[in-house]
């Protein structure tokens, strides 16, 4: 007998799987995708990933803002991994210094 927690997890997993196949299933119904939809789909990475960053920055304080600016500058010149390390390092330092 499985616990109700396990059933909820499996139902959540099923719904998540639907989101990951659903978009493709819908788009593949169309023979031809018009340029506007193409342009919209090409904007998906920037549009979606931005929404995860923005509220976190908006609700941050000086330590978070400083870290995100340093990370952003690092991101102009460095690849992803050093950028994340520098940004997180800056954040840890800023929080320690500011005592927040």
């Amino acid at each position: 007998m499985m616990s109700s927690t396990v059933w909820i997890i499996l139902a959540g997993a099923f719904m998540t799987y639907l989101t990951r196949v659903g978009g493709h299933i819908i788009i593949s119904r169309f023979e031809h995708i018009n340029p506007r939809i193409q342009a919209g789909l090409d904007a998906v990475p920037a549009a979606v990933l931005t929404t995860i960053v923005a509220p976190a920055v908006y609700h941050g304080g000086p330590a978070e803002w400083g870290a995100i600016i340093i990370a952003g500058l690092a991101g102009l010149y460095l690849s992803l991994l050093p950028m994340v390390i520098i940004g997180t390092g800056a954040l840890i330092l800023a929080r320690a210094v500011l005592g927040v």
Partner: peptide, 18 residues
Amino acid sequence: HSYGIDFLLPIYFLGLVM
């Protein structure tokens, strides 16, 4: 919090956006 874990993902996602 003091290890910055709560803000690690926003930094990482900024990198992806960039």
